[in-house]
């Protein structure tokens, strides 16, 4: 039976979370630890996935440095993305050998968990064909990009719970001219609590992954 632990890192630097992910991938891969769902938030940071084009970062590197924003090239699928405080970042370090050895089913399952979470808040999230992630109308609310090594996953998804969406104007998210939205933008600032969203997300992950 598939099951997973929870590791809530709170607000953590991207590099520190990356080191924790890498360590956990080894531990889950070797069977020292069971699959683990990492939850965190990051200070503003830009990451480039394997399919990324640096032209999708719209400000020069020195301007970003002055703003205190670092960029990282990471071994995950997808183009450029950005993390900001108020965005819930979720890194499932899951052994797919113990779930299903299916990369696309894993991506769809993560989308499903987000769709169910949003439904609980009366937000109608949708999937778009050939455009992984979760959308509300034409705006994107959750982005996905994963890495898999020996059937153990890392990286994952980011759900815009709140945060300053203006920062996304520094990039072309996923290399597309898309607008971002957040649960706070839709529901109002006083109606969403990220700690509660974390609880719901864990519950929905357990439901979808039958864990």
């Amino acid at each position: 039976m598939f099951s997973f632990d929870i590791l809530d890192l709170g607000l953590v630097d991207y590099s520190e979370a990356l080191a924790i992910q890498n360590r956990l991938v080894c531990e889950v891969s070797s069977g020292v630890k069971i699959s683990t769902l990492i939850l965190c938030e990051h200070n503003p940071v830009i990451t480039l996935g394997r399919q990324a084009n640096e032209k999708n970062i719209l400000k020069p590197q020195d301007a970003l440095m002055k703003m205190g924003i670092s960029t990282y090239n990471v071994h995950r699928g997808g183009d450029v993305t950005m993390h900001i405080p108020g965005q819930l970042v979720v890194y499932p370090i899951f052994s797919l050998r113990q779930w299903k050895r299916d990369l696309h089913k894993f991506l769809r399952a993560m989308e499903e968990a987000i769709l169910l979470l949003l439904r609980g808040y009366h937000i109608k999230g949708i999937r778009k064909e050939n455009n992984t992630g979760v959308w509300v109308g034409d705006k994107k609310i959750a982005s996905i990009g994963i890495s898999v090594s020996r059937w153990v996953t890392s990286h994952g998804l980011s759900l815009n719970v709140g945060g300053n969406l203006d920062l996304f104007s520094l990039i072309r998210p996923c290399g597309q001219d898309i607008m971002m939205t957040s649960m706070t933008e839709i529901l109002g600032p006083n109606n969403v609590n990220i700690e509660k969203v974390k609880g719901v997300l864990i519950h929905k992950f357990r439901e979808v992954f039958k864990a």
Partner: peptide
């Protein structure tokens, strides 16, 4: 050893 990385959809995976 990780030999090659491939991507499908938004997943990148290593082939040993």
């Amino acid at each position: 050893d990780d030999l090659v990385e491939l991507t499908t959809d938004k997943a990148a995976f290593n082939l040993p």
